[in-house]
Amino acid sequence: MQLAELQTVNAERAARRAVLVVTDIKGGAQRVVKAADVAADPLKEVLQKRLRLGKSGMEETPEGEVFVTVHVPSAKLVITGAVHISQALAPMAKMLGYDVAVVDPRTAFASPERFPDVKVIAEWPDVALPPLGVDRYTAFVALTHDPKIDDPALKHALERDCFYIGALGSRKTHAKRVDRLKQNGFDEAAIGRIHAPIGLDIDAVSPPEIAVAILGEITATLRRRDGA
């Protein structure tokens, strides 16, 4: 691979845009295709399919047997609630490769002492979220139990089409949340995208166990997606 092409790949990823590399593994010919340029590429159908699946692989094409590498942006995790569960969830998610941000306007919770090495933003979601670039490669988790904080953040996550959206709270709490979101104009399909109660059903009790349940569910959503 030419250094210039590698730089293009890295720059696209840093800008959180998907990029593909098409390699003729017999002849060595290679080209980089930015997501925005896929529609104009001779192999557009193959590349669109690969981009949709987010999976690299060999393809039989009119250009011969090529290997298509798909680079999608790294996943982000945005959490509202600098709570006990988040203290376990944030470092675990970092270990899984997520860029993590914790948002909580309550400064007693959102302190660097409670979250060493994690981006903690002690602001309301309407201030904190827009600069974070929440997108379809982002998982969003609402953990405050406080509708004043969680609701605006959930709306933001739904509007930005996060690949995973989860909200802590009992079925009863969630039923009230659903009512509020409906009043705000969100339809059943949108609201149905929210995982609540949050996390895989593994009878988790402690905050770190709940964090495992949440990360298990996020991982399943990320890896099983088909067409997302």
């Binding site: 250094l3 590698l6 790949v9 890295n10 990823r13 270990m95 490769g97």
Partner: peptide, 18 residues
């Protein structure tokens, strides 16, 4: 120990540039 995919490609770029 736990390099992510983009860390690996970034390392490839950085090592070559060096």
């Amino acid at each position: 120990m736990l390099a992510r995919d983009e860390d690996i490609l970034k390392a490839a770029e950085d090592w070559r540039k060096a």
